[in-house]
Nucleic acid binder design. Sequence first.
DNA 1: CTGGCTCCTGTACCGGCGGTACGGTTTTCA
DNA 2: TGAAAACCGTACCGCCGGTACAGGAGCCAG
Lengths: 222, 222
Amino acid sequence: MRKGEETRTRLLDVAEAAVLQKGFGGTSIEELIAETGITKSGFFYHFRDKNELAKALLNRYIENDERIYDEIFSRARDLVDDPLQSFLLGLKLLSELLSDLPNGHPGCLVATVCYYERLFDREIQETNRNAVLAWRRRFGRMLREIMAIYPPREPVNVDQLADMVSSVLEGGIVLSKTLKEPNTLAEQVLMLRTFVKMLFLPVVEMPRASGDSTFLGSAEPH
Amino acid sequence: MRKGEETRTRLLDVAEAAVLQKGFGGTSIEELIAETGITKSGFFYHFRDKNELAKALLNRYIENDERIYDEIFSRARDLVDDPLQSFLLGLKLLSELLSDLPNGHPGCLVATVCYYERLFDREIQETNRNAVLAWRRRFGRMLREIMAIYPPREPVNVDQLADMVSSVLEGGIVLSKTLKEPNTLAEQVLMLRTFVKMLFLPVVEMPRASGDSTFLGSAEPH
DNA sequence: CTGGCTCCTGTACCGGCGGTACGGTTTTCA
DNA sequence: TGAAAACCGTACCGCCGGTACAGGAGCCAG
């Protein structure tokens, strides 16, 4: 029992890294068992076929993902009481966590599965769909709390705004990976944070004084 | 010459649809030639290997993508003179175009390639990277024009804001496909539009009266 | 100490697929 | 009409996913 779990975990670790770099179709079982150090029979002892490997991989990824969000936003909630400030802090913490990843975000399995729909059975697609719906509920819950206090400056649909968080994360990952700019993802999260801040925080007429206008209109040419 | 191009185009059409549904690794050459109605020899007459098919596929996709953006935003530019209003109109037109797709957006090849990096040579990855950089330049150019007139309400980096457009599009596609909700993508684009609007359009103290949702805000710059 | 369970290894085999090689054939256009 | 373009047919290779099945090492309860 103990030994089996350990091997299985190692196998999943190797598979996850490979799949995020080459996709499911591009990842061969033989390559996984070579790197894990087991035989083909060993692999098929743990997983009936590639589809079941994908299932286990996706479930594990989603669970881990949820855990991370739980930690971040509950910590933000502990530090700040106001729901808006707490959410903004959570986004800040998230962006810090993302920019601390040494080689950038490795990629999102949900997106990988999404671009592989026809290869897997309905169960996996349903799992994937539920993961995205869980994100919608999670961020939606927090946004509803905010909206109960802060009237949004523009009329917005809560679910769509919640989806915006997922969109920016998924899109940011694609950009970050494609550009090979690890920081882009974290920057996008901060940009989203600016959006939320602007949407809910009342306008304050700041005295035009201090020089905090770092980025304002000036970016590199070209 | 003429016939060859036609077959090649049909092959690329079939391949693009298949790749967006199953990824490169999940798409077999044999299945492509079966649907196109040619033989294996015919396939390898047009493309030396799968890598070259991917290259042609990606280049064609990017060109078409650029063409669509050109059309939309130049049309918006023709209709409205103000750079901000023109950009907002462009986003509106884009969202309409996206919600008019009968089966939703089929997927973005740039994202597919991004999740397949290790499978292709550097040339393809470079092509993909340049496509994203072209998006950054495109939206950045328009945003700079806007910023020359409208001071942003919050300090933002132009490139990061330009990337936000790409992020929301890429992320919206993932969400739309995963949720099987074709409209989600268009909604996300409109949400981004709200962001841009809020960021640049001056605050107007509206008398709390009628339904609010006018698309083109009616305020004058500055 | 023994039997049974978990966790594998080893070997053999199948069919599909990417890719190569190469000769032949039809179609197209100058 | 003739050469180039655009294929077709066939045969073959090696990798890979998957199946089948036999067996073995280690551990733990009775």
